[in-house]
Amino acid sequence: MMRKILKNEWTVKIGSAVIALAAFCMLWQAVTVFTGMGDFLPGPAETFAEFFRRFVKPYGKAVLPMHMWSSLRRILIGYTVASAVAIVLGIVMGTYRIADAIVMPLFNIIRPIPPVAWIPLAILWFGIGDASKYFLVFLATFLSVLQNAYAGARSADPVLVGAARMLGANDGFIFRTITLPCAVPYIFSGLQNGLTAAWGQVVASEMIRSSAGVGWIIIRGMDNNDILQELVGILTIGIIGFILAASMRGVEAKLCRWTTRGK
């Protein structure tokens, strides 16, 4: 019974999503065909066709998938390293007050500076190559994951810690079996925010200085006054961002079964 309702709910949701996107595209197409806007704004059909054409026809030196790969490589490397460092540091800060007291004030000075504001300095320090992009992605991810890992490590329910102690657990065992699982949902929300921030950061840093990547596509489109290229670029950015976010949710659902299962 429950499963049937759930299934129907999904059918409605997916169905309406398809209808909604189709309706959106039709509206867009209609606007370009029937109004003067068509003179400079390409329609969806043209945009999608161009999107696929660019899989073989290069933008600049590389075809579209290669640009995607440039951006993805930057995000994957910077994001992975930053997440690992931030999770460890955040948990250490949440567990040991001395680490908290040392790092927190410095972090509080850096935190309000939006990651994009580091772009000029990063270029000065690391040049215009990939090194500066890794640094920038690292920074964007680090800021948001650290805060959450820290909050997560401090979120351990004192009643549960007491219960574990009552059952004979020592500090190390409590850390592994209580503190870490309590922190996991927080860490995941940090990882998700971090991924969004990192994706924005990659696009921004490519827009400002680069020779490949999806951010480069849209900035080159701007220089050439090429709206079609803009639309293809935005579409690509949206698709990749969507896939990144969705895969993150998938991993979370797998790892945090106890919070979602049975609800």
Binding site: V159, L160, A163, M166, I178, W258
Partner: peptide
């Protein structure tokens, strides 16, 4: 003076570990 496994405790609200 400290909690220890020679004593057991059953809580008011269930203090079960939700991830286990």
């Amino acid at each position: 003076s400290t909690p220890g496994p020679d004593r057991g405790f059953v809580y008011q609200t269930t203090a079960l570990f939700p991830w286990y």
